[in-house]
Design a protein around this nucleic acid. Structure first.
Lengths: 197, 197
DNA sequence: GTCTATACTACGATAGAC
DNA sequence: GTCTATCGTAGTATAGAC
């Protein structure tokens, strides 16, 4: 069934779309551009996915972490769970940057596609909320508002995706995975009022 | 010269552009849309600004804080300077949300307009770096990497613009100016290892 | 300074041949 | 399953009348 080293057109479109949407955003990316990148004909997007918008959703369906991933954050160990989240988001940002780029672009635009994106991401943010609340109850974290604590954690993590924008004023090169995790853990746990490291 | 309560077409275009670009992003906004909102003819964007792109730049020229604003952050009082930055960014986010929306969208997309946007924003971020470094030298702040400390501060502030995205899982309504400043100051100063409040 | 009319390009989608 | 050809729409910019 594998046509030599060629994947089928559907898969090639999916990969090209991930690349193009992340690099240029949904609006700046044309179906023609995706198909050129994939080396297939323009008509195949309509045929396989039913249009540009559905191709976008198929991307999240295929590559976004599933709800079960979130359940690896154990409520019984809030500090460990927060560390796990920091590692997982950092890993995703470094090794699979496209989906996070896409997510941030869509949120910044509050695009019409947000409701479906929420369905994929909210299980993870909900789990983070449970973990933070548990940490507060167990006196490992100290904060007043759960909403604010969640924003603070995610804000500290998401901003790293914007390194290229800040690059001209940065003094050091972008840190690797281990250093990123270590820096983020430092600021976030201290911000949450947690003395452990 | 003031045609009754009518401003001149150029000013009306500028206001309409600020509104539309922020709401829909640069790409999703058409010149026709801006001109309809402004109540002027489509051709006037080309005439007054020389095209859609230059209209965008004129927006930053007109509304973005000038370099002198940054100099209100006094290096001699790092904690006060960080508090001032938190207040100013929060004020801008609440009272003039359009430019921050626009800035975040452009950064998320790493649009071709980033180099000119940098010229407006970098003086402020540079000043923040000086302030953080001074605070570290004076042992009021404690961190290892200046780059990371700056990202952490700005990430904690910028994420608040994305409240509408998170809204369905939030337990409280979006806080007002004073509460926002107070929450942000709490997390940021603690994250910087500063015990003052 | 403002408007009408239009030129030109690009987009997304689809019908129909292969 | 894939391609060619084309339709309808919308985009930016400009020439020229007022």
């Amino acid at each position: 069934m594998n046509h030599n080293q060629e994947q089928d057109a559907k898969q090639r479109i999916l990969l090209a779309a991930r690349k193009c949407f992340a690099a240029y955003g949904f609006d700046r990316t044309s179906v023609r551009q995706i198909c050129e990148e994939a080396g297939v004909n323009v008509a195949l997007v309509s045929y396989h996915f039913g249009g540009k918008e559905n191709l976008f959703y198929a991307l999240f369906e295929a590559y976004f972490p599933k709800k079960e991933e979130a359940e690896r954050m154990k409520v019984e160990d809030p500090v460990g769970a927060v560390k796990l989240l920091i590692e997982e988001i950092t890993r995703m940002r470094i090794h699979y940057p496209e989906l996070i780029s896409l997510l941030q672009q869509e949120i910044a635009l509050m695009s019409p596609r947000i409701p479906i994106i929420r369905q994929h991401a909210f299980p993870i943010w909900e789990r983070l909320r449970e973990v933070l609340q548990a940490g507060k109850d167990q006196k490992q974290f100290d904060f007043e508002s759960l909403d604010q604590a969640m924003l603070f954690v995610l804000g500290s993590l998401f901003i790293h995706k914007q390194w290229p924008y800040f690059e001209p004023i940065m003094s050091d090169p972008q840190p690797n995975f281990e250093a990123s995790v270590s820096y983020a853990t430092f600021f976030i746990l201290r911000g949450l009022g947690c003395s452990d490291s």
